[in-house]
Nucleic acid binder design. Structure first.
Length: 490
RNA sequence: GCGGAAGUAGCUCAAUUGGUAGAGCGAUAGCCUUCCAAGCUAUAGGUUGCGGGUUCGACCCUCGUCUUCCGCUCCA
């Protein structure tokens, strides 16, 4: 099973490169690990996915507005968010088995073992020591803790460990051209998530857009994580794009809003015509430090079910933290009447429901779902094959391809006239080279849903042939109807 | 990061146990005109991932390095 799927995944990657969707970054210099560029059709598709999300969030929800926050943020942002302390994991390797462990996982497993053997007090003691050492970033102390307890690797059974190393997942850079005596003064991070740009602007947005809770703030943008291992094509990249919406609600209502967005987001995915059977929810059991409830929307990629979007109930953690660190009140005054007291709800820090989807993952999802290698039986009994991307017309890179059947007899002139007219309204593609069948196949390969062909009959009755990508069926329609025909599918 | 495998033209591959790189498809230009890729002609393209070493001579042997894939690991 996996072989077939892996092959399919390889085919998709190869197709993405060959047809100008995704290229390895700086490929002429051998590429940069886990960084990719989007090509002519890829950038169109990516933009269309982003636009479709943006429209469904901001335009179709009158209580959601968008922002575009900077990638650089004040360094304290990341202290408040917990990323400076928590977004890095001390790791240790066993020299014999070559296994790498997160230090906290290793020690926790050891403690669990002790508990099972009835040494509950000792286990507690070890965990307490670990927490104290982790809080101080005392790696030497942690190493000593491991050595003193003779904690061993479950594979090799030995305690032959490397030193503990820190892997900070945030990219650092220097801010300002002048070097400071204290290097820490100049450090800024490339944001590891876009969410904080929304949280720190919570009151700016609420006041200027005159929003009333419940309301949301949407944003798309790049984020950066220095992953230890980043692989699987564009699934896990070091530079990636998120589409996030933070929805601010009155405390006590977060449960129903979490449920609402959990369902709403899946509906969005299904609105692109993707098989519901390829989706599933994965509810988190072990929650992040800020979360009350969390789930992933997973999709069955060729490499298995993987997370494409997360819905998190984040309580008031983020706003409270920013209030604490900035010493600026992050309260909202709710004038709605509380039926229990007959008075306004008053001041509170709103709770947050987050929906966060990886744009690049969504792109891969669309590509994986759309990619089909088909065998076609021809009338003369022979077979033929084609690769077709069955991308929903709403987000297809090119909506309409326009072909004159031949290069002469005035057909190109008519075709170009139609092209010039249609390109005002949606992305079109014109081509007169090669046999018509070959041109159709090229459009299939990049997912163009409609092709029209201008032939000699066009000159007589002003009709053209429209050919549908998925069924390969064709019919004659009047030139006047082309635009409306395409538009109704978008 | 560890272990395994791979890297020759845009793609798929070839090059007789080391003798200095070829084909099909694709691309481009032209001919042909025929509604589902394969009609004809011509043209362009590679210091064989990169860098050392061995050799008279390296795509081939060797070392290093980069990238990709698979497994492990990691994944707020």
């Amino acid at each position: 099973m996996s072989t077939q799927q892996d092959n399919n995944f390889q085919s998709i990657i190869a197709h993405a490169k060959e047809y100008g969707f995704v290229f390895p970054s700086s490929e002429i210099y051998d590429g940069l690990s886990a960084v990719y560029d989007y090509g002519p059709y890829g950038s169109e598709l990516k933009k269309n996915i982003r636009d479709y999300w943006w429209k469904s969030m901001t335009q179709l929800n009158d209580n959601i507005v968008g922002i575009d926050a900077a990638i650089f943020m004040h360094p304290t942002t990341w202290k408040a968010s917990g990323h400076v302390d928590n977004f890095s994991d001390p790791m240790i390797d066993n020299k014999d088995s070559k296994k790498r462990y997160r230090v906290d996982h290793l020690i926790e497993a050891f403690a669990e073992n002790l508990t099972e053997q009835g040494f509950r007090d000792k286990a507690e003691n070890v965990l307490q020591q670990m927490d104290a050492l982790l809080a101080k970033d005392d790696f030497a102390g942690l190493k000593k803790l491991i050595d003193d307890n003779k904690i061993s690797c479950s594979i090799s059974g030995t305690s032959n460990w490397t030193d503990i190393r820190q892997f900070n997942l945030m990219f650092k850079t220097e801010f300002g051209a002048v070097a400071s005596d204290n290097p820490d003064d100049n450090i800024v991070y490339l944001r590891p998530e876009t969410a904080q740009g929304i949280f720190v602007n919570f009151l700016n947005v609420q006041k200027t857009a005159r929003m009333k809770v419940p309301f949301g703030i949407a944003q798309t943008g790049k984020a950066f994580r220095n992953e230890i291992v980043a692989r699987q094509f564009i699934f896990r990249m070091r530079e990636f794009e998120q589409m996030e919406m933070q929805f601010f609600v009155r405390p006590g209502t977060e449960g129903e809003w979490y449920k609402f967005w959990k369902e709403e987001r899946l509906k969005w995915h299904l609105s692109l015509g993707i098989d519901a059977g390829k989706y599933r929810y994965h509810d988190h059991v072990k929650l992040a430090h800020y979360a009350k409830e969390a789930c992933d929307i997973e999709f069955e990629f060729p490499i298995g079910f993987k997370e494409v979007e997360g819905i998190h109930s984040r309580s008031d953690f983020d706003l409270s933290q920013h209030q604490l660190y900035s010493k600026k009140k992050q309260q909202y005054f709710d004038t709605d009447i509380d039926p229990n007291t007959g008075k306004p709800y008053g001041n509170y820090i709103p709770y947050v429901i987050e929906t966060s989807i990886g744009l690049d993952r969504m792109f891969l999802l669309i590509l994986s779902n759309a990619y089909h290698e088909e065998t076609i039986s021809k009338e003369d009994g022979t077979t033929d094959s084609r690769v077709v991307l069955q991308i929903n017309p709403k987000i297809a890179p090119i909506k309409l391809a326009i072909f004159p059947l031949t290069k002469k007899d005035g057909l190109p002139e008519i075709a170009k006239e139609i092209f010039d007219d249609c390109k005002q309204d949606f992305r079109c593609f014109y081509e007169e080279k090669d046999a018509i069948g070959k041109r159709y196949r090229r459009q299939d390969a990049i997912g163009t849903p409609f092709c029209i062909t201008i032939d000699h009959q066009t000159k007589e009755d002003k009709t053209v042939t429209i050919r549908y990508r998925d069924t390969m069926q064709q019919e004659r329609i009047s030139i006047d109807l082309i635009k409306s025909k395409i538009k109704e599918s978008l």
